[in-house]
Amino acid sequence: MKTARIIPCLDVDAGRVVKGVNFVDLVDAGDPVELARRYDLEGADEVVFLDITASSDARETILEVARRTAEEVFIPFTIGGGIRTVDDARRLLRAGADKVSVNTAAVDRPELITEIATEFGSQCAVVAIDSKKVDGTTPSGFEVFVHGGRTPTGMDVIEWAIRCEALGAGEILLTSMDRDGTRDGFDVAVTRAVVDAVNIPVIASGGVGTLDHLVDGVTEGGADAVLAASIFHFGEHTVAAAKDHMTAAGIPVRPA
């Protein structure tokens, strides 16, 4: 049976969750580990931590997050953000992360994907692709952006995704920068195009505002997993409610 995964994503800055989270009964709503544990209890299939720490001297804190998460949370978790070398990846995996996600560094030096896959296995080599719709600049009409969506690369999203798979990526985390933060739903067109082009799992990301959007990511986009942040963090919906909604829409998921 093929089942879809629901993945809450937490933005972490210097070891703290940045977007406000309003679970009233949490002792420390800014603690990423406490939130991850909550999501585990609610039935989340995985958790993604995106480390947005800018200063390099504070980067040690994400390792501590990984260590504490591995002690307390028994679902898979991925850490992305700021991983530039195999050593960066190794430190996170040894600290307890199951997968690492690379983005800008992989565009700068695609061999990084192969190096991580060779050393630790494809299953832990996630490539995050930030996509923007463009007019005619790339064959598919979707262009890869880096540096948090600020810098265009001239690369085609679909071609890059295919290349990532060939380089050893085990999964694609595809974020539509056009939709991110809009709550208008996934860009199912780019999701579907990437899903059809590669044979590895694709996580749809960016734009979820309703539970129906999660369903659309799977049924229309063909995604293997759906990632969302704000709808879970702000207490609008629980992961359990999202799973009920998926089940009602006929999508097999692990029940909460």
Partner: peptide, 9 residues
């Protein structure tokens, strides 16, 4: 089916 199987089952 997709390889790897990366999911709950």
């Amino acid at each position: 089916v997709k390889h790897p199987q990366m999911q709950w089952n």
